[in-house]
């Protein structure tokens, strides 16, 4: 087990190292920082000169990569090209908001998906099962951004028609959110729609997966054995079937982290939430590669960590899987 963890850690670090090369090389070959700066009318030649020196932009690419890696470790991803403001504080603040969004959406999605999936599996081919399947089909065919926009329109219309403010459709907080409970309530009203949007997309995937996994277990021999030896049906489904059916879902949820971040990029852009996704889009539009690379590397670290956790969790939860 320990050797496995160590080996996987070493492999993850190698993947991250390779990813950093690809990210840096890719960004450098598709962007031209100096070219971008020269296009800005309000930046003088002298400023460009200074920036070039500060960021070592006139050096060959492998030297620049070295400077970047050094910046990443000693200087927390360094500074933005033009303003020379540090990247890290902005990114961390945005990350905090994204975590609120993602964690809430995931918890709701997992709870509902497990309920829907298990119930559809226990009542296979029932009306509920068909309804759930239809829902997940539509959910998977629906663009996330469209759902977000439709909800925005709906709640704005409700507000305009009846002067009823249920959820806000943009930003993290009101101008004057108050403090304590009021602040939390205000935040919930703002985050509710993005959370619903993110959750619905994931419920569609997870519930289908949970249903398939539960059906698989229900039809397995050891569940039949449990029934045959006279256990109560409730005990069979809850203790024998349900717990084992959860294992594949744990893996899926952990592996889905990258997809979750992609969803966050879209929802945060639409709901104007100050999160990582909006940070990424803003910096991408600003044409500055350094913050964009910081975002890409941070997300890569997250994905690698969650992949590792997925493998470890599988080994811990399912004793048949030997990690070595």
């Amino acid at each position: 087990m320990l050797t496995y963890v160590i080996r996987r850690l070493a492999y993850s670090i190698a993947v991250l190292f390779a990813a950093s090369i690809v990210v840096f090389w890719g960004m450098s070959s598709v962007t031209s920082v100096i070219g971008f700066l020269e296009q800005q009318p309000n930046i003088s030649k002298q400023t460009i000169q200074n920036i070039t020196e500060r960021k070592h932009l006139d050096e060959p690419i492998y030297v620049r990569y070295g400077y970047w890696v050094k910046d990443v470790f000693t200087n927390k991803f360094g500074t933005e090209t033009e303003s020379d403001l540090p990247i890290w504080p902005d990114l961390v603040r945005a990350m905090g908001h994204t975590v609120q969004l993602i964690v809430a959406a995931e918890i709701i999605a997992i709870l509902l998906a497990v309920l829907i999936g298990v119930y559809s599996a226990l009542r296979q081919y029932s009306a509920f099962d068909y309804a759930a399947t239809t829902f997940s089909f539509v959910g998977l065919a629906m663009p996330v951004f469209w759902l977000a926009l439709m909800l925005q329109i709906l709640f704005v219309q409700i507000y305009l028609k009846w002067d009823l403010r249920i959820f806000y459709v943009a930003s993290l907080n009101s101008v004057d959110p108050g403090s304590g409970v009021e602040f939390v309530l205000d935040r919930v009203q703002h985050l509710a729609l993005p959370i619903i949007v993110l959750a619905i997309a994931n419920i569609a995937t997870y519930s289908r997966f949970m249903r398939a996994s539960m059906l698989d277990v229900i039809n397995s021999d050891y569940v039949r054995t449990a029934r045959a030896k006279g256990l109560a049906e409730k005990r069979v489904t809850m203790k024998h079937a349900f717990r084992n059916a959860l294992i594949p879902l744990v893996t899926l949820v952990a592996l889905n982290f990258g997809g979750l971040l992609s969803g966050a990029v879209i929802t945060e852009t639409i709901f104007a939430l100050d999160g990582m996704g909006l940070y990424f889009i803003t910096k991408l539009n600003a044409g500055d590669p350094y913050p964009v690379m910081a975002f890409l590397m941070v997300t890569a670290v997250f994905v690698v960590v969650f992949n590792l956790l997925a493998d470890l969790a599988y080994g811990l939860l399912d004793p048949r899987v030997r990690l070595d």
Binding site: V15, L16, A18, A19, V22, V23, G26, M27, V30, G258, G259, L261, S262, V265, I266, F280, I281, L284, V292, F295, L296, T299, A300, V303, V304
Partner: peptide, 13 residues
């Protein structure tokens, strides 16, 4: 390697 960085992010870049 391709799966490590979120799909949409690389695509957007």
């Amino acid at each position: 390697l391709i799966l490590v960085v979120p799909f949409l992010a690389i695509l957007l870049v």
